[in-house]
Design a protein around this nucleic acid. Structure first.
Lengths: 269, 269
DNA sequence: CAGTGGTCTAGACCACACT
DNA sequence: GTGTGGTCTAGACCACTGC
């Protein structure tokens, strides 16, 4: 562990990082991991606790290095990983900022559906219509996806997204009741911007990553009606579980995508 | 640029990297990029030229540092990026190896379809059947996807993949004729392992990344028959363009996936 | 044991942004 | 100019691998 009273020296203690423990937090960190990983964990805790809010700058690398008693390079490597995971954004000359779903060029970071002509700009913003929004008790499968117990209160929302007047996406989504106390159809409707941005500003819930599970299906009668398609039209079924920090699931979303004018795009590497 | 005769010194010349030019290759590299990016480009050239073959180890970081006359840290950062792009695999204590589609735990790196129970192991390897394999002239859309001209020779393959006896994937794929001269249905059938591994060993073509474009569709009569499904069953249409180095497209693949027992899995971050 | 990648430090300078 | 992130170097030591 970095010894606290060691101002300017090769700090041989820091070199023996194995089992090291930044800031002397023995017992809190399981230790036996690289120093920069421990630093990453500490920064993650601060992000999680809301010490720095989405869109705000975090302290400079030098400041963090001083705070954690490590070199700037070690802090840099920690931030490198956080940046690679899209948790923070670096801006040369300005600082490092907490990532947010608002104010980004890409309005919908997790939406991989795009128009066939590829021009996301020309089609303009999606027209959103809240079909339904109510509180109910979680069924078994919803509870499992959200790591709740069957019967726990959840918020269920159904909405349609249209592009150029054509309804293209029908989404049902479920949110755990507790963290989203006070969310209503009206607040969803009045908010202009990505839903995940609203979750950030109003409920302090930041979606960090998500898993999607895709199938081809036919709509049922109600779904077909809402999307203005025939019962026989094949649609993309996209089931998404979105996670906050610590891999905590905070949303289950079941989307039906029309793929006659749009397609789901994915980059493999 | 790193001055050649500068054995042990702070090497202030290397520090002025802007417009630097590793190894004095002025004219070959566009310059005006970070040193480590130039090094990355040089390593990339060696990978591309086949100086190190898939599965082989590349020289150690120290060797490369000496060869390019830069510090180990700079080589490290270049390799870091190549590793992040899956072009190379690091193994502590052993070395850094050229990535390959063979000999990896994940047999099919680019195939995102997996069984609903999630157990890729238990279902065993895919049973492959070549339906068709012939040479013909590229149609307009095939030519465009492969950056060829209409009428250029291409190889067309149709095959079915089955899991546990259930035909699940029907693929049509097109390859540019020139690089794949000598590829026949027989060689495809006799080869055991991922198709991309055969491309590497037999034709020196390494697929490095791919773009996929997904829709929901109904099969035509022939497709339905090959997949043993009804005409009304919705299927996933997955169009993939796979690229070698330099973003050169080398394969167009149109897959039809059954999603009654499997699903397409995607991780967003 | 030697060789490899992995971690950590310290100091220098560059590129960019704001003031 | 000052402060930020970005690049580069040099040297040290740790952890893993295989002889």
């Amino acid at each position: 562990m970095p010894s606290l009273p060691t101002p300017p020296s090769p700090n041989p203690d820091s070199a023996s990082f194995s089992g090291g423990d930044a800031l002397g937090l023995s017992g809190l960190t399981p230790a036996f991991s690289p120093l920069y990983q421990q630093i990453k964990g500490l920064i993650l805790q601060s992000l999680q606790s809301g010490e720095w809010k989405p869109g705000e700058a975090i302290p400079s690398e030098m400041d963090l290095a001083a705070r954690f008693r490590v070199s700037q390079g070690t802090v840099r490597k920690a931030i490198d990983e956080l940046s690679a995971e899209n948790l923070v954004v670096r801006r040369q000359g300005k600082g490092t900022f907490v990532a947010t779903h608002a104010e980004q060029q890409v309005q919908y970071r997790f939406l991989k559906l795009q128009p066939d002509n590829g021009d996301t700009q020309s089609e303009g913003p999606a027209e959103r219509t809240i079909i339904d929004c109510k509180r109910l008790r979680a069924s078994a499968d919803i509870a499992r996806a959200l790591s709740l117990r069957s019967g726990d209160p959840v918020l269920q929302v159904r909405r349609v997204l249209a592009f150029a007047g054509v309804p293209t996406i029908l989404e049902d989504l479920w949110l755990p009741g507790a963290p989203f106390k006070g969310l209503t159809a009206e607040r969803l409707s009045n908010y202009h911007g990505p839903m995940y941005a609203l979750f950030e500003t109003e409920f302090g819930v930041r979606m960090v990553r998500a898993d999607e599970n895709i199938r081809a299906v036919n709509p049922d009668a109600e779904q077909a009606k809402l999307l203005h398609v025939d019962l026989k039209v094949p649609l993309l079924s996209v089931e998404r579980v979105a996670f906050t920090y610590n891999d905590t699931p905070m949303e289950l979303r079941r989307g039906l995508y029309r793929t006659d004018t749009h397609h789901y795009r994915n980059a493999l590497s």
